[in-house]
Each structure stands twice: as structure tokens, then as C-alpha cells.
Design a protein around this nucleic acid. Structure first.
Lengths: 239, 239
DNA sequence: TAGTGGTCTAGACCACACT
DNA sequence: GTGTGGTCTAGACCACTAT
């Protein structure tokens, strides 16, 4: 018997082979159910998932249409620094450089959505792969959102690992960019001044309160992010 | 009546509020169906989608368990350069710098999975936002995979737009990194030698044949990628 | 108004993996 | 062996929207 997965694959093949051209309507559920000899609900599930993946658009009465241009999404795994280093077979080490409770700078206040001058926690630290510096971390924590951070000294458990445990479900915004290393960054990363660095900037919040804002800086010559984006539900050979 | 979306949200709230703690089993479908007064299939659909989003793991006989640590995925929209520039309200312009059919270099042959010295198409071009250089493009096309490229001069339609039309459904691998601008890159992007650039590298293939390998270089001080990652199916305020 | 997708149900049977 | 999730069905009714 044909399962919804079979149907999902057949439909995807008809799309990717241009048997059903971009921009055109495909047969309706009733017709496909008869063709495949299954209930309409089975066809519905198959095509529903294809629509979720963005290859077709469905509208009541109008029918289901192959989406014209496939704008490509990449799913990037934001690395968890300890895991990333250990997966490389290197020894992970973390070093706290500074931990202060100080008035927020203008930039920090803007990112944390607090008033300039409000006290917040500033943390600077660094992560090593073996003996090589891997990541330099500059962080602000909004103490109004996470008051328990006051009790943490962050010498043994890094701020990220602690925050992930403390506030497991938060929204996030990431920015990736290339920059020239600041003097402090280049010193801690063992680079020359102005050398290129890859910066991941992350802001997380929950229920309207910003929790933390952090800049993670990596040596440009030793870091990259890779993502592999295959056509789902398809037999298009992936290698 | 309660819909599967209601149930999906209620279940997500129980997860994100730690009412159902990380690592623990949640009640089985039958129990939840009775609690919510719906059919088991309705509960199944709700939790299935939560499992697809990665918040729970389901195993027959073992039940459904809240996934312990939420490793964060970011969904990055790979920009389509023309759209990106036009969305900024700038005028898009494209300029072909070189188009040759030449023996593949060692690096190009490796990336295209062809023998060193096999003839392939080399394209160098550049994209402008208004009068400012925005992206410098260095591309190889595998002529064995896309023979029709020989007939294209790529003076009016850029190679990317042409390839997207010619081979709409291909698999892809993206790499993001920071680098120092090469001499050619810095000249065309109006940068100083060694200035930081953000490089997007893309390789696409279909049915085992690599189609193209391209490096897209952007001025580090004018380019970044941003991604916003909200907890789905949840009322966790997103601002 | 009519045609399409969206969803639910009650029941059934199956596949898997823990015991 | 047995309890869980995985899937299918036939029918039903609803929601939306193109015409």
C-alpha cells in the first residue's frame, strides 16, 4: 500500500523534474487520492508537509501551486563552543577575564533595552581549543531579567552554559559578520591588530525582557560555519 | 472545540514553563486525548509537529520525552543579491569582468569533482548597490553538468540567475567565513589590501554532479547576515 | 455559490522496542 | 508479550476565497 511518505516523494519528484512546472497548479487532493488509491487525508498529509517545506503554496478554492522561485534557506547550527571543540578532539578550556557589575554603556543599554547607566553584568572571557585561543567572548547580562546571575562567579561554569540552564527557552537573534580585530581581541586571540575575525553576535530574550547580549569573536583563518541544504523528500542524489 | 493548534500550544507551554521538565516523559497520547477531549489523532498531530521542531523525542513503547538541551538552529536566508539590493532601495547593477573556458585549477577541480585540467567555465563578476560595490563573485561552472552554459555570454543575465532558472532544484552547501581581501577583491570592492571581507562560498549539485562552485565576497564593514529564531508554537513573547 | 483545502473523528491495524 | 507511537480510512463538516 502507498503511504503518505511514498506520495510525498512522488509529488516532490514531479516538482523537481518539472513535470509540474513552477508556478502551475497541481491536481487537487481528490484527484490525487484516486490516482494513488488512498484516502484524501493521506494525500493531504503528504502535500501539507511539502507546503511546510516551502515548495508549494496552498489556498482554499484556488488549489495548490508550485512555488515559482525557490529562495534558498540554510539551516545553520549555532555551535556550542564546548561541544564544537570536543568534537574536534581538542581539550576544551575556559578562562574568565573579567566579571563586573557596572552601568551599562550606551550600546549595551540599547541592546538590552534598559536605560543607559542601569547596572548590568559585564563578562569578558575566552575559550581555548587545546592551547590555542578559539573564541573571545564579550557579554552583557540584564540583571533585571536574570537576577540570579549576581550569585554566580562564572569561574568554573561559563556564562553561556549557566544561562542555557537557567533560561532554557528563549528567543534569539544572531548576526554574523566579518570585522577587523580590536586591540583586545587580537591580543587574546593571538592575532595581529586588524586581522580579520568572524563575529557571531547573539541577543536572547524571553517574555519581552532581553536576557543577554554577547559578541563571540573567532580568528578568521581558523573558523567557518558550514551548512548543508538538501532538497527534502526527494531522491535528488545528495552527493 | 479544541484544535490541534490549541493542543500544540498548550503542550509547548508546559514544556517551556518546565511543567514538563527537560529529559522527562510526558503523558501518552491516549491520556492527553482524554484530558483535552479530542481524538488521539488530534493529539498525535500536535505532538508530531513539536517533535519535528525538535523539542520532544518520540519512540514507540518508550513514549515521548522532552529533549534535554535545546541546541539552537538558526535559519539563515541566503540572500539573492538582486533582491537584497533592491529591498534596500538601491539600484542593482551587475558587471561581468571575465568569462573564460579554461582548464580547471587544482582547487576548482577538487570542488567540482572533475579531473584537474578538465575544461570548465570561469566567471568573475561584480554586483553593485547604486554606485557602491556590494559583492565580488568568483565562479566555476562544471560544463559536463551544465553544457548549455557554453551558449551563454552572461553579459545581461548574471550566472546565478541563469543557473537558478536552468537547474532550479539542486542541493547546496554553504560556508561562511571571514578573510582578508585578496588584491583583486580589494580593488574591485574599493577596500584596502587585507581589509576584512565576509565570504559566502556555495557549492551546488544535483544527482551526483557538481554544478557550480562560487565565492561571494562582501566588504566586512558593509555586510552582515541576521537571523531571528523564535520558539515556535509558543506564547513566549517574541519582542 | 461552489470548489478547494483544513481539520476532526472513531476505529482499526501495524511497527517497534522495552520487558 | 505488551504498550507506545505511526499511519490509514471513510466520512463528515468547516473555512476560505475565486468567480
Amino acid at each position: 500500500m502507498r503511504t503518505y511518505k511514498d506520495i510525498r516523494q512522488i509529488v516532490m519528484e514531479r516538482i523537481t523534474s518539472n513535470e509540474w512546472p513552477m508556478g502551475e497548479l497541481i491536481p487537487n487532493e481528490q484527484v490525487l487520492a484516486e490516482e494513488f488509491g488512498v484516502a484524501r487525508a493521506t494525500v493531504n498529509r503528504a502535500i501539507q508537509e511539502i507546503a511546510d517545506a516551502g515548495f508549494v503554496e496552498r489556498r482554499r478554492k484556488a488549489g495548490t501551486r508550485v512555488v515559482p522561485r525557490r529562495s534558498r534557506d540554510a539551516i545553520v547550527q549555532i555551535p556550542v563552543v564546548r561541544e564544537q571543540i570536543e568534537n574536534m578532539g581538542e581539550n576544551y578550556r575556559f578562562a574568565l577575564i573579567a566579571r563586573h557589575i557596572v552601568p551599562a554603556t550606551k550600546a549595551a543599554a540599547r541592546e538590552l533595552s534598559i536605560s543607559t547607566g542601569t547596572k548590568a553584568m559585564r563578562i569578558v572571557c575566552q575559550h581555548f581549543a587545546g592551547n590555542d585561543p578559539w573564541q573571545f567572548e564579550e557579554r552583557w547580562i540584564n540583571l533585571a531579567a536574570v537576577p540570579a546571575a549576581r550569585e554566580q562567579d562564572f569561574t568554573s561554569v561559563g556564562p553561556n552554559e549557566w544561562l542555557v540552564r537557567e533560561v532554557p527557552y528563549s528567543n534569539a537573534e544572531h548576526t554574523f559578520r566579518a570585522a577587523a580585530a580590536s586591540e583586545q581581541q587580537s591580543q587574546h586571540l593571538g592575532l595581529g591588530a586588524g586581522d580579520p575575525v568572524f563575529v557571531i553576535e547573539r541577543k536572547t530574550w524571553r517574555r519581552g525582557k532581553t536576557i543577554t547580549w554577547v559578541q563571540l569573536t573567532h580568528p578568521g583563518d581558523r573558523f567557518s560555519m558550514i551548512t548543508r541544504d538538501d532538497i527534502p523528500y526527494s531522491d535528488v542524489a545528495s552527493v
